[in-house]
């Protein structure tokens, strides 16, 4: 899947991610860290929305270091940002359709799969996405990403601002997506407890640097707490 080799990235002259190297395999790869640790920057860099300042990024063996963001869905990458993740002036159906032009399955087949995962969306099809609740908006964003039939799904803090009950449901859906579709998932989160329930490997970022990268089974909560305090 993804192979990042000493990637350095940020906004204009400002460097946020400092020489990070890692590989994402067919797994749930969690990225944990406090506010400002560089999680969103990392996911935007993987989605090619931010240019690399240095380093090399490969996707399934192909160099995508200079790829444009619009080329990534065809390469199998779907990205769900933390905020502003739906098109408010488009209906739910239009939101789902706009992301579904990649992959081999028919549109109706893909819609059925999304509705099976998020039945509520089916009841809101003609409603404008801007009038959805936070949870429904998050379902729509994830559903739209799945319409792309991705091989890698980049999820940026999907639980942000949601009620605890819905967070449980969302994380179940993420795990189900991984299990049933075989999609590799890069999950950036602040909710360490929930993330550790479903992650295969965990990377902890601190101030743009990789603090640790371990299998979940080799990780204790105190490791993470320590990283958050750096």
């Amino acid at each position: 899947m993804f192979d990042a080799d000493n990637i350095r990235s940020g906004y204009g002259e400002i460097t946020v991610l400092k020489d990070i190297s890692f590989s994402v395999n067919n797994e749930i790869f969690a990225v944990l860290g406090a506010n400002g640790s560089g999680k969103t920057t990392l996911l935007k860099t993987l989605a090619r929305l931010l240019p690399l300042q240095s380093g090399k990024l490969e996707l399934q063996g192909n160099d995508v270091s200079t790829a444009a963001p619009y080329q990534m869905p065809a390469a199998g990458v779907a990205y769900v940002p933390q905020e502003g993740n739906v098109f408010a002036d488009l209906s739910v159906m239009e939101n789902l359709s706009i992301g579904g032009r990649t992959g081999n399955k028919s549109k109706s087949e893909k819609l059925d799969e999304v509705f099976a995962l998020f039945p509520r969306l089916k009841e809101r099809l003609s409603q404008s996405a801007g009038s959805l609740s936070g949870g429904e908006g998050q379902m729509l964003a994830v559903g739209r990403a799945l319409m792309q039939e991705p091989s890698v799904l980049l999820l940026d803090e999907p639980s942000a601002g949601l009620s605890p009950l819905f967070v449980d449901t969302l994380f179940s859906s993420i795990a189900e997506t991984r299990r049933e579709r075989g999609v590799a998932i890069v999950l950036a989160e602040q909710n360490a407890v929930k993330t550790l329930e479903i992650a295969d490997r965990v990377m902890v970022l601190s101030l743009g640097e990789m603090h640790l990268l371990r299998k979940r089974s080799e990780l204790s909560m105190s490791d993470i707490t320590e990283a958050y305090h750096i």
């Binding site: 039945p119 009038s131 449901t169």
Partner: peptide, 26 residues
């Protein structure tokens, strides 16, 4: 005004997992 009215369609079937769950922002 705007081109499309923002109509909230009525709920016809109970959602699979969220029938009792709040999906509002926490």
């Amino acid at each position: 005004g705007v081109d499309k009215p923002k109509v909230r369609s009525s709920t016809t079937t109970p959602p699979r997992e969220l029938s009792n769950a709040s999906v509002e922002k926490g």
